[in-house]
Design a protein around this nucleic acid. Sequence first.
DNA 1: ATTTAGTACTTGACAATACAAGGTAGTAGA
DNA 2: TCTACTACCTTGTATTGTCAAGTACTAAAT
Lengths: 106, 106
Amino acid sequence: MNTQFKKGVLELIVLAIVEEKDRYGYELVEAVSKIIDVNEGTIYPILKRLTNEGFFETYFEESKEGPMRKYYHITALGHNHCNELKEEWLQFSKSVNTYIKRRKEK
Amino acid sequence: MNTQFKKGVLELIVLAIVEEKDRYGYELVEAVSKIIDVNEGTIYPILKRLTNEGFFETYFEESKEGPMRKYYHITALGHNHCNELKEEWLQFSKSVNTYIKRRKEK
DNA sequence: ATTTAGTACTTGACAATACAAGGTAGTAGA
DNA sequence: TCTACTACCTTGTATTGTCAAGTACTAAAT
């Protein structure tokens, strides 16, 4: 899978998944993996960055199956950012697809 | 426009445009710009890289409106690479869009 | 009791690529 | 001669994803 395609899109997907409901990192890795193949070490830095930028708030909860879980909750700012990214992505992918598909039929 | 979304996709678009017919750099910048906003300094390094990788062949032609034009012609290898990238992109963007749109309707 | 597997988080070195800004040159018109 | 447009190229910088390694907790297997 082309690594470059993922740039920026992973951020959008992570935001969209956390928007649905609060999630902890490990859970997110699995959720993202269902959409696009991704490395564990990729998700955690994204979570940290998005938290630093004020898009997420975090809290801890205990687990019976392992160490503490760090949950991520989306903020109002994160909500807006997610919607903006979504719109940008839909426009972008549409432009590219329109061109690619037009060429394909020739 | 989100810079990150473009990563890897510009390569695909450049390949697809040159596949259509031989193009010179400056012309390509304008053609790509019609699809997605792009900087001149971004295209030339991509052309150089794709040529080094054997996807393009180049030749010069004179012009009445300025300096020599360096034309890029796609090779058989470039053709294959273009088709592969196209498939990868279509699959990738479909996965992402399916998830994004599903979420949007909720 | 020790090892193994699964869960969970973190970090640091590295690679790829887009952009901004700048430079070099040729042609043509004011 | 100066400006504008055409045409090409390079360098430094920032962003972001990957890989590899490490820490640590729980529970089941040896």
